[in-house]
Design a binder for these strands. Sequence first.
RNA 1: GCUGCUGUAGCUCAGUGGUAGAGCACUCCCUUGGUAAGGGAGAGGUCGGUGGUUCAAUCCCACUCAGCAGCACCA
Length: 648
Amino acid sequence: MFQISLTFPDGNKRDYAAGITAAEVASDISTSLGKKAISATVNGAHHDLQWPIAADATIAINTMKDAEPALELVRHDLAHIMARAVQEIWPDVKVTIGPVINNGWYYDFDRKEPFTPEDLGLIEKKMKDIINQRDGVRTEVWERDRAIQHYKDTGEPFKVELIESIPGDEPIRMYWHGEWQDLCRGPHLQHTGQVPADGFKLMHVAGAYWRGDSSREQLQRIYGVAFLNKEQLKAHLTMLEEAAKRDHRKLGREMDLFHMQEEAPGQIFWHPNGWKIYTTLQDYMRRQQERGGYVEVNTPQVVDRKLWEASGHWDKYQENMFIVEVDEEHAREKAVNALKPMNCPCHVQVYNQGMKSYRDLPLRMAEFGSCNRYEPSGALHGIMRVRGFTQDDAHIFCREDQIEVETKKFIEFLSNIYRDLGFENFSIKFSDRPEQRAGSDEVWDKSENALRSATEAAGYDFELNPGEGAFYGPKLEFVLTDAIGRDWQCGTLQVDFVLPERLDAHYIAEDGQKHRPVMLHRAVLGSFERFIGILIESSAGRLPFWLAPRQVVVAAIVSDANEYCQEVVAALRAQGVRAELDLRNEKINYKVREHSVGKVPVILACGMREVEERSVSVRRLGEKQTSTSSLEEIVSTLTLEAKAPDQL
RNA sequence: GCUGCUGUAGCUCAGUGGUAGAGCACUCCCUUGGUAAGGGAGAGGUCGGUGGUUCAAUCCCACUCAGCAGCACCA
């Protein structure tokens, strides 16, 4: 028998017979470690304790104190335990897959009857029983044919399909949790009792397509969250409650920003407060674009299908377009139109007016373009995913050799704006050529290289999204992370060689000949609607002063101060500060509470003392303490605060 | 679009086969109160829509619309 040498994290080495399992190694170190061990990391790979070690290796024995592998194993085993529980309760349910995800796991089941919330309680109880049984976990490698036959015999068609899709050189591993068997590549805990019985919770049931394919069977997916102990679980559930409190749909109502209604699904009725945020942001973006060398245009909403046919949208995007057919009697001529889902074809029309010279390039054409897309009903989500929205869109018409410089410029432009808006950190995803694409490989090489090197030159790392590019070119996506860790794609930059070709855009180069420009599609905010949703949620409604729709409320403490309050409001408004008056017959407690709930950043309260001193009592949102300022002082302070970051 | 759930007053939610209720918000009155809800009175609803069952439907059934969660799709 071979001897092998294992190196431990502390540098110690021990010799063992080849083929020894990690469990045996752990027990050899100490009996208690043998019991506490949950898995082993062998040569950097995570394995369960039954893993036989054939050659010299580095090894670390993991226990529940090693949070990362422990969570992975606990969640993974819970997926199996849940599947077993479901099959013990309803033996005819078919099992499929159940991976670990953020904070927990899910498992997809095929069952005719829907799982009810009561069912979740039953399953949870059964899972706890299984955990308390402390059933051992064991594994075997099976021959492919045997595994397929097994699942044919037990009536598990999804498992058969899974095995058939496992590459031929990969072993087929079977695991048993007690008597219950599942196909799995592991690793797993030693026995079910190692799962903390009070650290998990089944959250909800939802539909999910088999293999993520909407043409395949729809299964029922049960989601669970799991942690190493009760306290961590509780902290997670509390975090979810906090997240729900900052939901932009809830805050939008509380702050009276907007509403939506049945007659216009996926479209927003902006109220005065919300529209103030929108226009303030738009004014800011317009100033930035002017500084950034953009020209602003505006193009039609309703456009003849002929243009969409030429651009390729009619072919590739029709499902998502609002088609407008006008009754012939009412129409000057019979025509089928569509509301524009994107601005690019219209921008090419503007570009195409008159001859363009190479001296005109790069031409940066911006539009706050209102677009309508017929999004699937299930995709709609508050103001974040809507059917009518406005992009801060622009198209940069340039030569191929300008792509890199323009990309670099854009990334700088965007990062400045994100910083102004309070997002110091963002990540970049780079999506390269998809399988189905237009344009030659040569052109793709060129544009991918240009995007990549420009991003690197700007000093940013990016994550590769292989095959996720648009059919017409590669793209960069700029992703913001909000205050509770959720990612949102906002900005984008896409290289496009195809549309200029389809819509016959050209310029006259130095050689006197016609050449095709390249188009860079780009947006910073993405859409105002989504971006405002992100701003609301990440700030929990406490927008920076310059963006707050109601910046100041001047509240009278006694009615004898009413006149003075009006004077304060007038002084603030004269300086462009958005100030409102609250002279209602209510106590100051009541007014403070109401405006605090309404997320007004500054409340200025005035009673007789302030009238006499010509001062105000200042209360800032989120602070318990108040301070006193003279009228002149507070007006100049707030005037400065009300300025946008680019106007300081 | 698919699966499941939900739809009652402006908001949050009770409730019943015999055409409805609370709290907050709103209006009016009292109260002039010093930093997160002062007191009283009043008004407010074809119970998402359409059709069906029934002597009678907000409640039961069918269809439909919208919302929510997830999937698929995406700014």
